[in-house]
Each structure stands twice: as structure tokens, then as C-alpha cells.
Simulated scan of single mutants.
Amino acid sequence: MATIGTFTKTENGYNGSIETLSLKANKVSLVPAEKSGDKGPDYRVKSGNAEIGAAWAQTSKKGGKPYLSVKIDDPSFVAAIYANLVEQDGKHALIWSR
């Protein structure tokens, strides 16, 4: 598992940054989405004005802790990035694993 982003919770979602070997996005926000059904995302992931993904609220099976399941995609990617946004020591880390 690798931490690929750090975020701070705000009144309107989360703000932070994502960095990998091929992606560097300094101003990323997760903003509440208008729900269009039970399976629709809870948040839209944006970098500037571009929508780059979505996130769904989940609860861990061990410990019952809340987290966000995040999908980030871009036409330049070979495949989408799947990660979890979890709270760690008062901040939120975007954790990726294969």
C-alpha cells in the first residue's frame, strides 16, 4: 500500500493533492455529488475545473470505520486508479494498493 495523496476535511468535502510517478495534482477537491440513485457516487473528484473521478462512502468491515472508495481516471491513464481515503491522525490519506 502506498499513500498517493493527502487531504483535509472541509465544510464542503475534502481538499488536498495527489502525487504519483505520472500524476501530480496540487489542487484536488472531493465535492458532494447530487445522488442519482443508490449506486451513484457520494462525491465528485475534481482537479481545477476538470472532473477526474468519483468517490463512494463506505464502512470498513473491521472496526466499522468510515472511509471513501475513490476512482480516479484520465484519458492519459492506462487504467483507472482505485484508492481509499482514510482518516489517519486527524488528516486524510489517499491509500492505493494493487
Rank of each mutant, 00 (worst) to 15 (best):
N15M: 09
N15G: 08
N15K: 14
G16C: 12
G16H: 07
S17K: 10
S17C: 04
E19W: 02
E19M: 10
E19A: 15
T20F: 03
L23S: 01
K24S: 09
A25K: 13
A25L: 09
A25V: 02
N26Q: 08
K27I: 00
K27S: 06
V28A: 07
V28G: 09
S29T: 13
S29Q: 14
S29D: 06
L30D: 03
V31F: 12
V31P: 07
V31Q: 11
V31L: 14
P32L: 04
P32D: 05
A33K: 09
K35G: 04
K35P: 00
D38S: 13
K39H: 07
G40K: 10
G40Y: 10
G40A: 13
P41Y: 04
P41G: 09
P41N: 08
P41I: 01
P41E: 02
P41F: 08
D42A: 12
Y43I: 00
Y43A: 03
Y43P: 04
Y43K: 02
R44Y: 15
R44A: 15
R44T: 13
R44D: 14
K46F: 04
S47F: 07
S47N: 13
G48T: 01
A50Y: 11
E51S: 12
E51K: 10
E51Y: 10
I52E: 01
I52M: 08
I52H: 07
G53W: 05
G53T: 05
A54I: 02
W56S: 01
A57Q: 15
A57T: 15
A57P: 11
A57E: 15
Q58V: 04
Q58N: 10
Q58T: 01
Q58F: 03
Q58R: 15
Q58G: 05
Q58Y: 06
S60H: 02
S60A: 10
K61Y: 02
K62R: 09
K62S: 11
K62D: 00
K62G: 02
K62C: 01
G63W: 08
G63S: 09
G63D: 04
G64K: 14
G64P: 08
G64D: 03
K65C: 06
K65S: 10
Y67E: 02
Y67L: 03
Y67M: 07
Y67C: 04
L68D: 02
L68S: 03
L68G: 07
S69N: 15
S69V: 06
V70W: 01
K71E: 06
I72F: 02
I72Q: 02
D73T: 12
D73G: 11
D74F: 14
P75R: 07
P75S: 11
P75D: 08
P75C: 12
S76M: 08
S76T: 08
S76Q: 09
S76E: 01
F77P: 02
V78K: 14
A79M: 08
A79R: 13
A80G: 09
A80W: 01
A80S: 13
Y82D: 06
N84V: 10
N84P: 04
L85A: 06
L85H: 06
V86T: 08
V86F: 05
V86M: 11
V86W: 05
E87W: 15
Q88W: 01
D89C: 07
D89L: 13
D89F: 14
G90M: 10
G90T: 08
G90H: 03
G90N: 07
G90K: 04
K91M: 04
